[in-house]
Design a protein around this nucleic acid. Sequence first.
DNA 1: ATCAAGATTACCT
DNA 2: GGTAATCTTGATA
Length: 203
Amino acid sequence: MISNKTKKLKREFYTRSLLFVARDLLGKILVKKSGSKILSGKIVEVEAYHGDYDQASHAYKGKTKRNEVMFNEGGYFYVYFTYGAHFCANVVVGKKGKGIAVLIRALEPVEGIDVMIKNRFGGKLIHEKENYNLTNGPGKLCKAFGINKNHNGTDLIGNEIYILDQPKLRSNEIGVSKRIGITRSVDLQWRFFIKGNLFVSRK
DNA sequence: ATCAAGATTACCT
DNA sequence: GGTAATCTTGATA
């Protein structure tokens, strides 16, 4: 359940070290306002990307037009388009100029589920269990939340998209693994997820 | 100007 | 479990 202690995360949360921020994002609530509607979901799976020594990171080869948002200070939204079809949403982390981010890989829907169904499937949900297929992947959650290129660079300290604080998870509730879908720096154990959560993208 | 790769997904057997 | 789809970006000429 969602705690009553629902304060928006501040800049200081995001400007800490990468792996601390990545782990601490688990269990927090991503919120997006779209008109009068509110969409929200609990973060249940993330991956860390570091610009300096992580060859899988978009920022590894330095700043380009595509990845420039990654070089902001922590607390900005980095959205990119990939495979000709999908957007992926990241939280920029650390100090200005570093090129560090956390990819949000999966959410557990909380508010605005009707809108998410509409965004993902055009309004029709054939099987009840399809709810588990709404936001259990980086491209899927962007589609469900209506996140696209226009949201690249959004300040998460603002009111359009932000993340609500929640009690910190115990370490035995968090799973760790290699990252998914990359071909370089494959051995880093930088994927974190909530153990047993049904909305995690893969086992 | 051309080209290959990609932090994925959906659909097929 | 395998793979086609699809197009933007960044690198190379």
